[in-house]
Design a protein around this nucleic acid. Structure first.
Lengths: 227, 227
DNA sequence: GTGATGTAAACTGTTAACAGTTGACAACTC
DNA sequence: GAGTTGTCAACTGTTAACAGTTTACATCAC
């Protein structure tokens, strides 16, 4: 009986490989632009190339890998412009989040979840990535819109990839900063101040982009475009 | 030389199958929940099962298919709640679009693009889906943030899937309504009235959800949650 | 030395085959 | 007749092998 239930959920190899690849990528063990050697990966994971290719293809759909015909799969790499775009969208996702899809009590719960994260703030960077992602997933569980939560998670994963590319500072400082921002964000919302929460996210975007030369003008401001 | 350039871009079978599957799904030829028979599809497309599986996996990452171990791939199906969630997120994406990532002159260009769509308004539904998607891609080309544009496209594709599930009205009327809304939206923006454009999208969401029983309360309104 | 050419190893793209599972249906029991 | 068991066809999961391409490197001409 137990076995039967397990069987229903028992994953196939593609899913195992996919999760392992996501781990390797989001933890920064596989750096952006790295080529995925199918044979090597297959041997390392004890499977054949089929499941490896399927996993890499799914990640391509998720935007975590890219592929070039006859050259194989690569860990997604981001140009400066693309990194800016990610950080530009982030405040909008969070705005939707706090305005329409979370209650103040949800915010309090998330703040409480975040309190537990302190203990891991000093561990290694890969462990930190793994744990923070889990915490973030727990927080996203409180978003009353699964689709938006999925978008947010997808954005977070990309942030982990570009982590090495923005604000080249040491891991400990990075970790501290990330947690503090999260704390500020949820505290502001729990204190019934959604505008402040949004401002925090906007400021955070600017902070991480500090090492990236600003775009000349991503789009004329519509308000300035008035006749 | 030409050949060499072509070769660089020449797709592999997975990509061909993927594009064909996207077409079949967004045109409604493969209905939500339909099981994808790998052998059958492979024969029909003249390839083996490998590329078919890879394509289906990539679509899983894109959210257009789902998979259940040992049972295979299915065209993504959406519960009423999930459909509501999609339409809830739509106005936010468009808000970001018009507020930060498009100029008024971009809006005018999109309006002009849309004018050409009139001719196809009476063709068959699959043709309409195909053509409208192309027009939408052309319009999204004017968004000054590729990541956001990709999110919007992904949302549109899902709307094509759920088309059969919301507002069960005849195809001609549906097509007319979709084009009119688009026209209103871009006109409002071109006329320097972003708030009106957003309102149009919000009203459109409500319209399509009319046949779906409203959720009791997707989230207490934060503003009501004030102490 | 510099650049072109040839060659072999490594790698990807694809296929076909095998193993194991699922689902449908007939046969059987009570 | 209702429910159980057995059986078989259809299908998925996985692997291994083959073909074709790319890359690196050595060889050769100048």
């Amino acid at each position: 009986m137990y076995k039967a239930v397990q069987k229903l959920k028992s994953p196939n190899l593609s899913e195992v490989v996919r999760d392992e690849l996501i781990r390797l990528i989001t933890q920064g063990i596989l750096q952006p632009g790295t080529r995925l050697n199918e044979v090597h990966l297959a041997e390392q994971l004890g499977v054949s190339r089929g499941p490896v290719r399927e996993a890499a293809r799914e990640l391509e759909g998720l935007g975590l890998t890219t592929s070039r015909p006859r050259l194989g799969f690569y860990v997604a790499d981001f140009t400066d412009a693309e990194i800016v775009e990610l950080y530009e969208v982030s405040p909008w996702i969070h705005q939707a989040l706090v305005h329409d899809f979370m209650t103040y009590s949800d915010a309090e719960t998330c703040g409480a979840i975040l309190r537990d994260v302190d203990s891991i703030a000093t561990s290694s960077v890969p462990d930190f990535s793994e744990t923070l992602l889990q915490f973030r997933q727990r927080m996203l569980d409180h978003v009353h819109n699964r689709y938006l939560a999925e978008q947010a998670l997808s954005l977070y994963r990309r942030f982990y990839i570009v982590a090495a590319l923005v604000r080249a500072e040491d891991g400990a400082r990075r970790m501290k900063r990330i947690i503090e921002t999260q704390r500020f964000f949820w505290t502001a919302l729990a204190e019934r101040d959604p505008s402040k929460a949004i401002e925090i996210m906007q400021a955070d975007s600017r902070y991480w982009l500090q090492d990236i030369p600003p775009r000349f003008s991503h789009a004329d401001d519509p308000r300035k475009g008035r006749t």
